[in-house]
Structure formats: C-alpha cells, structure tokens
Design a protein around this nucleic acid. Sequence first.
DNA 1: ATGTATGCAAAACATTTGCACCTGG
DNA 2: CCAGGTGCAAATGTTTTGCATACAT
Lengths: 150, 150
Amino acid sequence: MSPRAPTHEPDDLKKAGLKATLPRLKILRILEDSADHHLTAEDVYRQLLSAGEDVGLATVYRVLTQFEAAGLVMRHNFEGGRAVFEINHGTHHDHMVCLECGRVFEFVDDAIEERQRRVAEKAGFTVDAHQLYMYGVCEGMKKHSKCSKK
Amino acid sequence: MSPRAPTHEPDDLKKAGLKATLPRLKILRILEDSADHHLTAEDVYRQLLSAGEDVGLATVYRVLTQFEAAGLVMRHNFEGGRAVFEINHGTHHDHMVCLECGRVFEFVDDAIEERQRRVAEKAGFTVDAHQLYMYGVCEGMKKHSKCSKK
DNA sequence: ATGTATGCAAAACATTTGCACCTGG
DNA sequence: CCAGGTGCAAATGTTTTGCATACAT
C-alpha cells in the first residue's frame, strides 16, 4: 500500500480531468521510466521520436504544462535557460545539480523544511511552493573524469 | 569598516577587470539604487531610458552577464521565464517571492545553511552555489489587496 | 592610437498559439 | 457524433551575436 503506485495509468489522467490520449500516456510513461527523472521538453520530444512516435514538440509543451497544472509533474527552472520536468511522486524533495555531468540528485532534510516553515511564519508569508537547489560537482565527477554524459 | 561599501565606484569595475564605461557605471548605479533590488534586464533598460540614457538592451544583457561573471551581481531564475539580477553585497541570502505583488524578500537562516553543508558533505557533493526560493503570498497581500505593484 | 565597448538589427532559442484535421468516449 | 486534442507552422518573448562605429586608457 504505497501512497502512490510507481506506474501511471489512464486513470491518473482521467482523475486529473484529462482525456487518456496516446500522446499523454506516452509522455507520462517517458517521465516515469527515464533513468534520471529530470527531463526538458526537448528530451521528452526526442525520446518520443526515437520510439517512432509521431508527436509534435508543441504537444509535448502543452501536455507538460497541463500535467503541471494537474499536479502530475513539477517544473524546475534550473540554470541554463530551459525548464526541466519531473514526475511528482507526492513527496517533496530538494535538488543537487551537478554542473559537470548534468545529473540531478534528490534529498530531503526535515530540519531544513522545519526552519523554512518557521522563517515564513515569522515573516507572515504564506508559502505555496518552495525549492532548494545546490549547484556543484557530484562525487563521481571529482574522483575521475570518466562520466560521459554531455 | 563594512566589508563592502554601499556604493559602487569605477574602482569596483576596474578590480573586476572591466573598463569603467558610462553604460556600466549607470547600470551598476541602477542595480544599487533600485527600491527592490531584483530587476530584470528589461527593468534596467527601462530605467536607463527613463533617465534619458542612450543604451541598448543588448548592452544591458552583455553588461549584466559580465557583472555576473565578475561576481558583482547574482542572477536568479525565478518562475516566469525572465531572469532577475541583484547586486551582490557579499552576504548570501535566500528569497521569498510574492506571487501577488512580485516583491522579493530576503532572509538568512544559519541552521538551514548548516544543514545544507552537511547534506552536501554527506553526499560527497562540492557546492558551488545554492539558492532557496519560497513562492507564496506576502503579509501585505493577505491583509488587504492594496498593493499596486504590477 | 588601439583594443575594447556599444548600438542597432538580425539571429538564435525556448515556449506558445492559431487553425484545420483527427480521435477518444 | 462532438468536444476536446493534436500536428504543423507561424508568432512571441527573451537573450545572444555580427558588425560598423564610438570610447576609455
């Protein structure tokens, strides 16, 4: 009884008030299955093309935006101009972005979350969303330079 | 003996390896003097025009990018597509962005900073930069809706 | 002088939108 | 069948770049 099943089904879309169309299901699947769960719209588009699907980039953007509005995915504005999207598994987490290999590492720290709540409360600020990004170099990149991801 | 004087002079530019040209000095002044210290390139450009300066938007972008590289300003990718810039006064701080009035509030919490360091260390991650954004509604916006900023 | 900076216009990107056609329920 | 979804191409908005001219040292 996990709080959210690891696979997304047509039902997830219907619950979100969206028709279970082929492009939407494919995109949901890609976001779900991708090794590192943080993809740009272009990334998703390229994976669709590789899979032989006939989907337009505009649709990818539209679907991702709808998914974001429905709470199915989260959008991040990391450095570098383009937005990245990740499946929302329901548990908040923060991010470490490796500037060498581009990979994204997730973490949670309850003390940080608690302090954030306190700071906001003290300032009379109602928090809708919050995100903590650390940019730097991941462990694998420091030891050797054998990581090959662009 | 403050760690950084509140005004920026030609010397600041020279130290950064940049010629003290008129556009650069004007832009530095604007970033320094602006009421809320978080401006888009367009904001800076409009202020220059209002002041009767003959500066191109391209120059604003070039100068802001150079300033960022020189460590004079910091660039933030808040929600909404356009980057915002703020003078770097040397002291790290995090941000609360009001989605109603657009204002940006700064804060520092040593416990959060400390926990971040610990998390990164534990993950073997070397942090170059880190930023914490909270999006929500500021105190002024909740009580009445009398704030008029776009 | 002289190399660097600037303004303007055009280019390069990321993302959005208009519209005719297609599709899911 | 019909509202809503999609592909394509064109539009938008932001940021970058090429190039001839202007400026700081």
